[in-house]
Design a binder for these strands. Structure first.
Lengths: 231, 231
DNA sequence: CCAAAAGTGTTCAGCTTACACCCATGA
DNA sequence: TCATGGGTGTAAGCTGAACACTTTTGG
């Protein structure tokens, strides 16, 4: 069998997945980190990760690893980069594929994370991480910033129902800028894919703010008729 | 040794690199494909690829593989995605990392490519490729389109010296749109990082067009003082 | 002298930005 | 009644898009 011989000549490598898990809490963007449970760098802060197994694709591996920490399925999850420098993991040659996830912090079950020593960190206050995980987070943040401007992925970080001020705070946290609230509301509502509900959120103010819902059907319709999302 | 045990439990995988090599020829964007030399799918068209070896990083592997086909070093090369679906290569489980390269077709040595059966294809006229290589090209093209609008990577596809009409044709080929030549020239020259030379390119017209050179120093200066490249 | 590509300014519309005051409510 | 955040409209400046004629020169 020529083909088997051709493949068999080559080396094989451990392949791992590392997940950058973003969450949003009132007004700050956070990342979920875990305490590493085995050597090398045991006890250090790291991204949640795990090794690829034979019976799953990369995307499936990322879903499995995300689920094992958060208990969440059907989460926004996107592949980022592949890291393969020779010494990146001092214990063995490991090729690692990074994914980032956007989750609703309210859905995240604190209890489950305990066994991994998981903790949310504001991005500016995160500890130094093992290997190239700091770089992974930097790149994930760049991607989130870029992509959230041209695609409505930010909604994955909010609850189903949210107010316009909450949405504005989210974009301000992601992009580290301040927006004028009149202009922001005008821009977002002019896109006509937020459905206004007859409910108010009253935790943040005495007056209360109307709740909205992202209407994916209207969004798709708009996109198909040439509309461009842009924040 | 606990750590060794932990790693050794896991499977290892073949890791490959596939290169999407873009070139630009007068007015069309092209991709360089090769005839596959071994089973499975022997004789079919594919991207240039190769297996990762122990002593090199992913980037080094991509450089080596690109060099083996084109004889070129110091080429614009950027990692794209990682492909790991279970059946993507029917012969074995292979995790493949795609890279795209932007080369100057004038530098490419036709002779070297012969041994791989390499051939340039216009994107619309390319044959069907093996495995997921068609998807890899689609994604590479999306990335090239997006990135060439906000970063001056397009110049990697032109010779050192080029005319404004050549540059315009390049952007028209990448983005599949027509630009108004007055607006295009105005926009590109207002950025002040093209150096006008005292030479004319006279192959394309009787009048001849002035040659320009991309001045990376001026470009960096502009970027550092807040300028945003945008086409 | 003519064909073929290079080169050159201005105008208008639409979008982005800046900006200040009233409203509703719980404590 | 007052403090707090929610909600609203308009004007000015700027940017992007549309548009036509002259220049050069080899054949």
């Amino acid at each position: 069998m020529l083909k088997k011989k051709h493949y068999a000549e080559h080396s094989r490598f451990y392949v791992a997945i590392d997940c950058i898990i973003f969450g949003f809490d009132k007004s700050t963007l956070k990342v979920l980190l875990v305490k590493r449970k085995f050597a090398p760098m045991k006890g250090a802060w790291s991204l949640m990760g795990g090794f690829l197994i034979d019976k799953e694709s990369l995307d499936e591996a990322a879903e499995r690893i995300l689920f094992s920490l958060t208990g969440l399925n059907n989460v926004y999850l996107e592949q980022l980069n592949c890291y393969g420098d020779i010494g990146r993991d001092p214990a063995a040659r490991v090729i690692s594929v990074s994914y980032y996830a956007l989750i609703k912090t309210e859905d995240y079950n604190e209890e489950l994370g305990v066994k991994y020593g998981a903790k949310w960190f504001e991005l500016e206050k995160k500890p130094d991480l093992i290997f190239d995980h700091n770089i992974m987070i930097d790149k994930a943040l760049s991607r989130l910033r870029r992509k959230s401007r041209s695609q409505p992925i930010g909604f994955n970080l909010l609850s189903e129902k949210f107010t316009i001020p909450q949405l504005q705070k989210l974009y301000e946290a992601i992009h580290q800028v301040q927006f004028d609230k009149r202009n922001f509301r005008k821009r977002i509502l002019s896109m006509h894919f937020l459905e206004k509900l007859n409910e108010k959120e009253k935790r943040a103010s005495r007056k209360g703010a109307f709740l909205y819902r992202f209407d994916i059907v209207k969004y798709e319709e708009a996109i198909n008729s040439g509309f461009l999302f842009e924040i």
